[in-house]
Write a protein that binds this DNA or RNA. Structure first.
Length: 570
DNA sequence: TAGAGGTGGAC
RNA sequence: UUUGUCCACCUCUA
């Protein structure tokens, strides 16, 4: 399968979108029909663990692979149907899953064949819209994480020159379910001129929902669970970003102004600077003007969303707070405080109350049942601690981690005591304490033995704290080349918008993986033999010697050539 | 060092 | 009991 060709086309789509913003893409449908694209889409769908659950036709990955030609047959069939125009997505299976806040989330589970087509559609949409989206959009996008969003927000709010005072926390009610298909199509039309392709998206959106034997056809909502739903939601909500950009950041009539006078203009004509950070339907805007003006802005946002996008702002969840009171975003609590060392005012990232409560509940849930065997319970606990602790490694909360470790220890101990009711405390302690030579720093000394192997439970305090200072991600389809999404780089918080001014500090591994992406996007064909596909990146000097990377010094090579290069050196 | 599989977390 | 992105970890292969 020729993924090289696909990557090349995706890069072209991205480049063309950047170079010709006014031009609309034509003849996109042929890519979705292409057997190579469909095959790649199928492989990504099958790589997900969701491929073992079926849609309405009952086909799973296992069922598909009972026939050695199952995958090829499916791709052939989809190709034929798409070309003939007879392809119709089947209704999705309605399933409700509990959300973190206790409410239910409706999912629409499509069949594997429909997911394959959706994946192919996403492969077309993503390169185009990665060139369109603004830097304030962080949700559901490649190379961007919640931590990137928090980092950007922290960076802006802790800039004393900007003097941000007010926080408008926003939440768009039932966002995914209320996106109107007609409006979404109109938005897509701004960049895409291919009725067949748009029709395909519309039929995908309008495919029926099967529930209790009845099928309904909605006129709004992107089915949660569809491969391309996240990118479609972003395409739709980009209109919000774009409106924000032209009404609060750079008004069209200011386009000729130097960046330094922009801030002055904003101050006199708008009343201050508003900085938006959006993660899917969850957003935060920081404002350095007056409180009453903040109220007006909130109302303006509300009317824009209602009038232009037909979306509601949930009134009880949309609050205006002072920056000193802090605010919750993406599971973190952002709060300004005096720094302990020098008394300087500084912005800190902490763990939100809700996240702490949820973690404690999860620990209790694992240790509640004593009929589970201790190896299973301890491995589950280890996974929870590692995963949760890792997500909150960017919180400045050493004290909290210590106290949670104490809580976890008490829970484990009470679990052990309850499990061995007949034994005394000393006997239980002996039973669940790892032998000294198997204890490790950063782990509890309580644990279990599975044969020779010790099942250890990591301590939250053993996970190193990380600085919330992440660099700006590159364009995923263009690598590290300069992407002029915005009119001009500027001063103050404008720097934040300029992707190249942002001097970020990242973990080694992140930087390394970025390099792989950048180099891969550059060629996608082995730079040594020129024939085979790139699978590896060769460093000269080696990565472990310098720990620095320069895309110019790295070679994209295939496995065989990589081995040859290493062999020649030794 | 790179791939494949799996586990956990955030939204 | 699903989708997408991201992060971390573990195992295996060379």
């Amino acid at each position: 399968m020729d993924t090289t060709q696909i990557l090349k086309i995706q890069t072209e789509l991205a480049q063309r979108t950047l170079a010709q913003p006014a031009e609309r893409h034509k003849r996109l449908y042929r890519f979705v029909c292409d057997e190579g694209w469909l095959r790649t889409g199928l492989e990504t769908v099958l790589a997900n663990k969701g491929s073992s659950t079926s849609g309405l036709d009952g086909v799973t990955k296992g069922r598909l692979d009972t026939n050695p030609d199952g995958r090829s047959n499916l791709v052939h069939q989809l190709h034929a149907e798409l070309v003939a125009g007879t392809y119709h997505p089947q209704p999705v299976k309605r399933v409700y899953i509990p959300k973190a806040n206790g409410k239910l989330r409706p999912l629409g589970i499509a069949t594997l064949r429909d997911r394959t087509v959706q994946a192919a559609v996403k492969m077309v949409l993503e390169p185009i819209y990665e060139s369109v989206f603004l830097p304030c959009s962080w949700g559901f996008r490649p190379l961007r994480s919640t931590h990137h969003a928090l980092s950007a927000l922290r960076r802006a709010t802790s800039d004393p020159r900007m003097g941000f005072k007010w926080i408008i926390e926003g939440d768009i009610a039932a966002c995914f379910d209320e996106i109107e298909h007609r409006l979404l199509r109109r938005v897509l039309k701004q960049r895409i001129q291919d009725e067949t392709f748009l029709d395909l998206i519309t039929t995908m959106l309008r495919c029926g929902i099967w529930e209790d034997g009845r099928v309904t056809y909605p006129s709004a909502g992107t089915p949660q669970g569809a491969v391309c739903s996240p990118v479609l939601a972003n395409v739709f909500l980009h209109e919000f970003d774009a409106w924000y950009l032209r009404t609060y950041r750079v008004r069209p009539e200011w386009a000729h102004l130097a960046p330094s006078s922009l801030q002055y203009r904003r101050k006199t004509e708008i009343g201050g600077t508003l900085m938006l950070t959006r993660y899917a339907d969850d957003w935060v805007a920081v404002w350095n003007g007056s409180r009453s003006r903040a109220e007006e802005i909130k109302a303006e946002i509300k009317t824009f969303l209602a009038d232009e996008l037909h979306l509601r702002l949930s009134e009880e969840k949309t609050l205006i707070t002072h920056i000193d009171d802090g605010f919750d975003f993406l599971g973190y609590r952002m709060q300004g405080d005096k720094r302990w060392s020098d008394g300087q005012w500084c912005f800190f990232s902490r763990v939100s109350e809700r996240a702490i409560r949820r973690f404690r509940d999860a620990v209790k849930e694992i240790t509640r049942y004593t009929f589970t065997d201790e190896v299973a319970a301890f491995t589950a606990l280890a996974g929870l601690i590692r995963g949760w602790g890792n997500y909150y490694a960017y919180a400045a909360e050493s004290r909290l981690m210590d106290s949670l470790d104490g809580f976890i220890y008490r829970e484990i101990w009470s679990y052990c005591r309850r499990k061995q009711r007949t034994l005394g405390a000393k006997a239980v302690y002996r039973m669940y304490t790892l032998p000294p030579h198997l204890r490790e720093v950063g782990y509890f000394h309580l644990g279990a033995m599975m044969g020779e192997q010790a099942v250890r439970i990591p301590r939250l305090s053993g996970i190193p704290r990380k600085a919330l200072r992440l660099g700006y991600p590159p364009h995923p389809y263009l690598g590290d080349i300069h992407t002029d999404v915005l009119p001009a780089p500027g001063t103050g918080d404008e720097c934040w918008w300029d992707q190249h001014v942002w001097a970020g500090q990242e973990g080694d591994r992140i930087g390394q993986r970025r390099l792989v992406t950048a180099v891969r996007m550059r060629t996608a064909v082995c730079e040594v033999c020129g024939t085979q596909l790139v699978d590896e990146v060769h460093h000269d000097p080696p990565w472990h010697e310098t720990h620095r990377h320069h895309p110019q010094q790295a070679l994209a090579v295939c496995v065989a050539c990589h081995r040859r290069l290493h062999g020649a050196k030794r």
